[in-house]
Design a protein around this nucleic acid. Structure first.
Lengths: 301, 301
DNA sequence: ACGCCAAAGTGAGACAAATTCATAATCCTA
DNA sequence: TAGGATTATGAATTTGTCTCACTTTGGCGT
């Protein structure tokens, strides 16, 4: 028995219009085609779907059972097709984001909030747990956008620059380093450094400062949440180096001091990577624009 | 865009087996056919369903969306097909019953209880509210079994005799008629007669006794429920004529007397009508057998 | 980096299925 | 029972799907 959606559609049309001829009309086929089709299904199913002895053609018990199935299934199919139309027109789509940078939640969330309002049909998600190989995941289409500060030359991928930020030193006002106008690598030697729980190569302090200078802090403590890092810093249990946008609030609290790292200060650039084919999608362009402009407001305010 | 179940089945198979070739195998078509098919859907949908740049072929975002639909829809279709197989094999079916006779609930319920256990796949129901034209409803396939005591010669319908019963007079022990060994038409002239709320032509007392004798009771009161009729009779607010099986309990209570109607007693035969085509169905045969034998137990006990 | 193997894609022709056209059979109504 | 409306049927045609044979592609081992 090989039921197809065509059969369900026909059944429903016949029931709705109350006749083969009218149904055939709405289905844009001839009455004859429908008649053949009905005969075909009944032969296959081995069950009479219609009550013949009365015009206008009526559904039998089995036909009613099939109609119930049709009325549950057909709307689902229509929804699916509608969604695909949305996809094709660019209204809809998927935006699953991998962030290599822990602190990015901070500006990403407001960005996505705005984005969602503008593109309700886009399926937005942040996929944690693939900070390791986010770019391969991008190419495997497991995610659609990667936030990273290390652009790579990867065929099929495009890195869109977002904005610059300064990895900034933060410590308790009680900490002796609060006295200095800026900090240097050596200053970390007798400090407890609090970092996100990721590879050293992916942490700005190490990659840009400590590893080149071959300086090892007295201790390194890994903490997941930015708020907790700040709390630990406030109670002088350690110091941290965080992107400037994270410090917008701490900056003016008397518990903290923030200082440049090195006299010139560090500067890094954040990028968003997409597949090259996806870059022109309208919603992608929009989210990139938001990600370029919104974080600046945070950095300033 | 013309999605068909075939496409959903293919998509699911490819996802499940993780490859075109293996999927084609389980679908009993060639790998080539599947490849063509996939191409066809993608062209229609205007959306890439699979991620090509990696073997083993993987679903894209859109493909996953379609897969979710498939996983909801295909089991429903399978259930439907299974049910149709049941129908064809005679295991399953519909048994919607119209009763012309109000008191028949009494014996029908126990019968159906037994029946349901034996034929769990048959959709059993009692359709009230078409006591008027039950036989036309049978022919229109709105119901599948009609309980009636008036067989008609109707082409396409079969009347199966069930059992005989005696419309029996019941009154309060206080009622003067309690003195008589049996009642006759004239006895009703100064009684309140309690009946079910249906046409006189369908009530045994009238059809068999009062109408031929041109006797009109002092009053007629229509009551829906058998239990209520018995209650009213017990408190001597009226008398009634009910099938003997209904009286099995009242018979031995001192509040009531039951008497034959006329010296000889009345006898009626109950029938079950089915469509001729349905009569040989195994479950139909079974319910008829039960309806022939079970009520006898009630009449005796 | 090269080449091999497995897996997916392509194109032409064969085959199957759905549809149409023309017409016949039914049913309902007047 | 005649007539209009509705459904059924058969043969021809169109459409679509599948197969066969072959090419292309991506992954992997040496």
């Amino acid at each position: 028995m090989h039921l197809e959606l065509r059969h369900l559609r026909s059944l429903k049309a016949i029931h709705d219009t109350g006749g083969l001829a009218r149904a055939a009309d709405t289905l844009n086929i001839t009455q004859s085609a429908l008649s053949h089709q009905v005969k075909g299904i009944e032969e296959q199913a081995g069950v009479e779907l219609f009550v013949r002895r009365s015009k206008p053609l009526k559904l039998s018990a089995a036909g009613l059972r099939m109609l119930r199935a049709a009325e549950r299934i057909l709307p689902e199919i229509e929804a699916l097709e509608e969604e695909f139309r949305g996809l094709r027109s660019g209204r809809a789509g998927r935006l699953h984001i991998a962030i290599e940078c822990h602190a990015c939640f901070d500006w990403l969330f407001p960005v996505l909030e705005q984005f969602r309002r503008a593109w309700p049909e886009v399926d937005v998600d942040i996929r944690p747990g693939l900070a390791f190989g986010a770019l391969p995941a991008l190419m495997r289409e497991e995610v659609d956008l990667v936030i990273s500060s290390d652009p790579e030359d990867l065929p099929g991928a495009v890195f869109h620059p977002l904005f610059d930020y300064s990895p900034t030193f933060i410590a308790s006002a009680q900490n002796p380093l609060a006295e200095k106008p800026f900090v240097v690598a050596e200053d970390f030697r007798d400090q407890t450094l609090i970092t996100y729980p990721v590879d050293r190569g992916r942490l700005d302090v190490f990659a840009q400062l400590l590893t080149p200078a071959k300086v090892e802090p007295r201790a390194v403590r890994q903490v997941e949440l930015t708020a907790v890092i700040l709390m630990l810093v406030a109670s002088n249990r350690g110091v941290a180096v965080l992107p400037d946008w994270v410090l917008r609030e701490a900056k003016y609290q008397p518990d903290y001091v923030t200082r440049k790292v090195t006299e010139a200060g560090l500067t890094k650039r954040l990028y968003a990577a997409t597949r090259a084919v996806d870059a022109p999608l309208p919603f992608m362009a929009h989210v990139l624009r938001l990600a370029r402009t919104e974080p600046l407001k945070l950095q300033r305010g």
